[in-house]
Design a protein around this nucleic acid. Structure first.
Length: 194
DNA sequence: GTTAAGATCTGCT
DNA sequence: GCAGATCTTAACG
């Protein structure tokens, strides 16, 4: 496992969203190490994208979205859940990639405990709220540098998997539903939806 | 101060 | 497949 190189973040947001597929999300804590493979992402843009939190300017919630790329943007939603984003674009731009689903690889017992019920592996991190529970991601990590412990992105240079990536409309939004900005590893059993 | 909506999930039908 | 939970956030007055 190698920590990602920071240059990965200096591409367009759509490219980063594609690039993150197949990479690893790692979380260290007192309970132990947990990680999994990212298999579903969504891009949120600053131009012509009313579904993006930054579309109406900078607010208390989205401040970190306007910060430098490679940091976390984490927010609370629906009274219960957190969503985890990777900030993209130069400082002041206001773009990000939402990580929607992860294939659990290591630490499944810890994830089950955090999720609070006896769930099978396909349901541990198959959605933005679920993966934040499984990885113990909350507001305290908002703005965290994603090349540093305890929450970081990594690559596995040994692995050679050919994945087919397809683009679909984003999930759960009411604006800009026509844009194909959701990227998934086709055929994965760990997606939030097909 | 008040209100409406939300990048969701779970449980029930 | 669908309704309800749940409460922060942001917009408005």
């Amino acid at each position: 496992m190698l920590t990602l190189e920071s240059k990965i973040f200096w591409q367009s947001t759509e490219e980063v969203a594609r690039e993150l597929l197949g990479k690893y999300l790692c979380r260290e804590s007192q309970e132990g190490l947990v990680y999994g493979k990212i298999i579903e992402t969504e891009a949120y843009l600053s131009e012509d994208d009313p579904a993006c939190h930054s579309s109406r300017g900078i607010t208390r919630r989205n401040t970190n979205m306007f910060g430098p790329p490679g940091k976390a943007y984490i927010y609370f939603i629906y009274g219960k859940y957190f969503c985890f984003n990777v900030v993209t674009g130069a400082e002041g731009t206001g773009e990000a990639v939402l990580v929607r689903a992860v294939e659990p690889i290591v630490g499944l017992d810890i994830m089950k405990q955090r999720r609070g019920s006896n769930l099978g592996r396909y349901h541990l991190a198959s959605g933005p709220g679920k993966l934040c529970q499984a990885f113990a991601i909350d507001k305290s990590l908002d703005g965290h540098d994603l090349l540093e412990k305890p929450l970081y992105l990594a690559d596995n240079s040994i692995e050679d998997d050919r994945m087919r990536i397809i683009a679909t409309p984003r999930i759960g939004i009411s604006a800009a539903q026509d844009k194909l900005l959701r990227f998934i590893v086709s055929g994965s059993k760990y997606l939030s939806r097909r």
